[in-house]
Lab assay of single mutants.
Amino acid sequence: MEVRTIKVFTTVDNINLHTQVVDMSMTYGQQFGPTYLDGADVTKIKPHNSHEGKTFYVLPNDDTLRVEAFEYYHTTDPSFLGRYMSALNHTKKWKYPQVNGLTSIKWADNNCYLATALLTLQQIELKFNPPALQDAYYRARAGEAANFCALILAYCNKTVGELGDVRETMSYLFQHANLDSCKRVLNVVCKTCGQQQTTLKGVEAVMYMGTLSYEQFKKGVQIPCTCGKQATKYLVQQESPFVMMSAPPAQYELKHGTFTCASEYTGNYQCGHYKHITSKETLYCIDGALLTKSSEYKGPITDVFYKENSYTTTIK
């Protein structure tokens, strides 16, 4: 009895394709271990004539594949690729409408935090270190965002349907971005203890939790000093293409032309909904596939993004 075979390709990165001759009487799992086709788990399936010449994702289970996976995804987590594939199996079914010149995501599976993050990423200057993220990001900007969303979920250790947080998501993504040249110098002034300067680099240099107003941050924000008295913390120097200011959701007025974009969060910790506000020729609110415009805006804002380049204080 002759062994019926077909020729397929296996890959971990969709760049390096490895030619395989597979036995049609055995499952993919018996031949390769966990195997995925377009995100779908085909591990328990036997090869079919229609699979001839198709590319299958496999887990990096030998040295060659491990090197290829690390170079593309910059992670050695053995569960990463499987999590990416199972997320992709959902995100490829989502709709990605162009809204006001940006790629958004039609609401499904509690994905409003991903839509808000995706919209924000198209408006701030950011370059990702893992080629996987950078490639998928370019495709997302062009309207094909399924891979990018699935990668975000995998890097953030999230599953489809789980509630997510924009600030946490951005923080994970910033860790995989090139923020080497970003720098922030802060000064804390206390009447009792004097003053202390701190220099922050990388992710810490672009994120701040405690106030939404970048102007206020430049002037000074009140913080408790270690001595128990009130101290003032203010920005001395900022070198970065953008800054992200966050605070627990509270009524906040966004003035046209003073910011790049913002995240609105309605609801409580267990259950809520994100919308995205962007400042173009007027203010726009993007909620999944829905767009509304207004000249002014007041609502429960939790993150505001500002364009920056270089700032030095005039406070002496």
Rank of each mutant, 00 (worst) to 15 (best):
E2V: 10
R4N: 12
I6A: 10
I6N: 06
F9K: 11
T11C: 04
V12I: 11
V12C: 10
V12A: 08
D13M: 06
I15K: 15
L17N: 09
Q20D: 07
D23V: 13
M24S: 12
M26S: 13
T27H: 12
Y28G: 03
G29I: 05
Q30E: 14
P34A: 09
T35N: 05
L37M: 13
V42D: 05
T43H: 14
T43Y: 09
K44L: 12
K44Y: 12
H51G: 05
E52P: 08
G53N: 15
Y57H: 12
L59F: 10
N61A: 12
D62C: 12
D63C: 07
L65W: 07
F70A: 10
T75Y: 05
T75M: 10
S79T: 14
F80I: 03
F80C: 04
F80P: 03
G82I: 13
G82W: 13
S86Q: 15
A87T: 07
L88S: 04
N89F: 12
H90G: 11
K92V: 09
W94A: 03
K95E: 15
P97L: 12
P97D: 07
Q98P: 06
L102R: 07
I105D: 06
D109C: 05
D109Y: 03
N110A: 06
N111E: 03
L114M: 08
A115I: 06
L118H: 05
L118A: 01
T120E: 03
Q123G: 04
I124W: 06
I124A: 03
E125I: 05
E125S: 08
K127I: 09
F128S: 04
D135P: 04
A136R: 02
A136N: 09
R139M: 14
R139G: 09
A140P: 01
R141I: 11
A142Q: 15
L151H: 01
Y155K: 05
Y155Q: 04
C156P: 00
T159R: 13
V160K: 04
G164N: 08
G164M: 01
D165I: 00
T169I: 10
Y172V: 11
A177Q: 00
N178T: 05
D180E: 11
D180N: 13
C182I: 02
K183R: 13
R184K: 02
R184I: 05
V185L: 06
V185K: 07
N187S: 12
V189F: 08
C190E: 00
C190Y: 03
C190W: 01
C193M: 04
Q195P: 11
Q196H: 13
Q196F: 13
Q196Y: 14
L200R: 07
G202L: 01
G202P: 01
A205E: 00
V206D: 01
Y208S: 15
M209K: 15
G210M: 00
T211C: 11
S213F: 00
Y214S: 02
Y214H: 04
Q216F: 02
Q216L: 07
F217R: 00
G220R: 02
Q222H: 11
I223N: 03
G228D: 01
K229E: 11
A231H: 01
A231Y: 01
T232R: 09
V236G: 01
Q237M: 12
Q237I: 09
F242R: 01
V243Q: 01
M245H: 00
S246W: 00
S246P: 00
F259Q: 01
T260G: 00
A262M: 01
Y265K: 00
T266I: 10
N268G: 15
Y269N: 15
C271H: 11
H273K: 02
K275W: 00
H276K: 01
H276V: 02
T278R: 07
S279F: 01
S279H: 03
E281H: 03
L283D: 00
C285L: 11
C285R: 08
I286Q: 00
D287Y: 00
D287N: 01
G288Y: 00
A289L: 07
K293I: 09
S294M: 15
S294C: 10
S295D: 13
S295N: 07
K298D: 11
I301Q: 01
I301P: 00
V304I: 10
V304T: 00
F305I: 10
Y306R: 00
Y306W: 01
N309V: 14
S310Q: 15
S310E: 11
I315T: 15
